[in-house]
Design a protein around this nucleic acid. Structure first.
Lengths: 114, 114
DNA sequence: CAGTATCCTCAAAGATACTG
DNA sequence: CAGTATCTTTGAGGATACTG
């Protein structure tokens, strides 16, 4: 937000604006939506967010992690396995996603949309 | 969204994604939030969205109008008066804004935020 | 697999000036 | 007042190649 920036939002004065900076970043809503069903690996997220580049996915996940909305767990195996999961704080975003889905569903007119 | 584009979203296949395209556009959430309290004039919105340029405000309002989320009413007076108001469809966004505020409020930690 | 490192594009949106 | 017309910037995010 050019202000549509990925900087921490703790300086925002309006809670709606602060939230918009989070949820408004491309892919974030989708990512949180995916994570709502449980822990996911990098490659799983890469597939469910068709079109996202690893660069962007990585950035977004690190940012969510830095905000305390997601935890990253790395398992010392070969091949490496890393899982991302919502924190309790991150789960606080789910009602928003829920409302977004409800609205989007109406908005699209139920034309076979997810 | 460069998909983060302001094109109509009727081609989106996911309702969450479709909604993200609307609510994710800069200023939109704030605008809808302002309009939730009643009709507003261009200059009123310009003031409540501190920092928005007339160019952007105009574009955003026209876009919301084209999506059927806002109605524009022009009163043939001098000086000109124009009011913007949420449609019923546009009011469907309010629960999302409400949840955003709730989350943002928690997230910011109640430090005097709106 | 799970990312980084680079480079690059494109469009959102800011600044400014002007008009019906 | 309620915008439009231009011009410009900037940075999000895509593409691609590479690595521990």
């Amino acid at each position: 937000m050019s202000t549509r920036t990925m900087n921490p939002v703790h300086d925002a004065t309006c809670s709606v604006a602060a939230c918009a900076e989070i949820i408004g970043a491309k892919w974030t809503a989708l990512l949180v939506h995916d994570l709502s069903e449980g822990a996911r690996r990098f490659s799983e997220l890469e597939h469910s967010c068709r079109g996202i580049s690893p660069r962007t996915l990585s950035e977004r996940l690190r940012w969510l992690e830095s905000e305390g909305l997601v935890v990253r767990t790395s398992y010392p195996e070969a091949p490496p396995r890393v899982e991302y999961e919502l924190t309790v704080k991150g789960e606080g975003l789910l009602p928003i996603i829920g409302e977004m889905r409800r609205f989007g569903h109406e908005f699209l007119g139920c034309c076979g949309s997810i």
